[in-house]
């Protein structure tokens, strides 16, 4: 369970560029929920993820993850319980390291990174089996530096790496936005599969309204730091892309676009 209580977030406070993103924003995410967050640019979607992950500090409020107040924890400590996949496929892997090396790093998350050898022969087999389930042919490329893989392959790997170890929360930050439509589809299906299999709690920011409607069990539309649509389960299932589009248009007219 993730709870955001009374979050205030102001950028450039005290200057002419002062921008209030969140003013007393609250939200709670039940364990096992898969939330899609949509909204126009500047509506606070990515800021929301950055606040949860601790990438940026908040001005007021509390963030509670599974009963622990994590508001003051630095990003790297929160990350022990949080996985994240970024929009840029290069962000989730180390480009000059091979697939196996990357997976070995990820598999050790939460443990000590000491003087033991990082790559273990036994694990290599296990990693190859895991790559086989992706169906991207990566199991034959395990000794290739990740930097040489395509964006889709890297993103699949990032997804695998961020969910390898037990986590309480998965953050997906427009993770299909930089991919071609077909690859994006594959990654989205893979995401859904992993979230279901591992029963993860996931928060996904996306610009793809269809994905938002099709996947997950809760949909939130953000506008000016507020959730203007927030539907769960059956109500969410009734939502269509057209419903979202009409709301989008209404907002745009309101903003004078």
């Amino acid at each position: 369970m993730l709870e955001l209580v009374g979050i205030d977030k102001v950028f450039n406070a005290g200057t002419v560029n002062e921008t209030t993103i969140f003013d007393n924003f609250s939200m709670s995410v039940k364990t096992g929920a898969f939330i899609s967050i949509v909204g126009s640019n500047g509506s606070g979607k990515t800021t929301l993820l950055n606040i949860i992950s601790g990438t940026i500090p908040i001005n007021a409020g509390k963030i509670i993850l599974d009963g622990d107040d994590i508001t003051k924890l630095p990003e790297y400590k929160r990350a022990r319980k949080i996985g994240r996949v970024f929009q840029d496929p290069a962000m989730g892997t180390v480009p000059q390291m091979t697939i196996i090396e990357n997976l070995s790093l990820a598999a050790n998350k939460g443990k000590k990174y000491g003087f033991e050898f990082a790559v273990d022969k036994k694990k290599t087999e296990y990693f190859k089996e895991m790559l086989l389930t992706l169906g991207l042919g990566l199991e034959d490329k395990t000794e290739i530096p990740v930097g040489l893989l395509s964006g889709g392959q890297r993103q699949a790997l990032s997804l695998l790496m961020s969910t390898m170890t037990p986590i309480d929360l998965l953050l997906l930050d427009e993770h299909t936005a930089a991919l071609d439509p077909k690859t994006a589809e594959t990654i989205m299906e893979l995401t859904d599969k992993i979230v279901r299999e591992k029963k993860l709690t996931a928060v996904m920011v996306t610009h793809n309204l269809r994905y938002a409607v099709e996947y997950g069990n809760r949909l939130v539309m953000m506008h000016e730091g507020k959730a203007i649509i927030d539907k769960c389960d059956e109500e969410k299932a009734k939502l269509t892309v057209d419903d979202l589009l009409s709301t989008f248009n209404a907002i745009s007219i309101e903003c004078g676009n």
């Binding site: 990350a79 994240r84 989730g92 892997t93 180390v94 000059q96 390291m97 998350k109 939460g110 990174y113």
Partner: peptide, 17 residues
């Protein structure tokens, strides 16, 4: 490996906790 990861992609190190 972590040293290499720090040079190659600092964010990943953060996300490894």
């Amino acid at each position: 490996y972590m040293l290499g990861a720090t040079g190659g992609n600092e964010r990943l190190v953060t996300y490894l906790g």
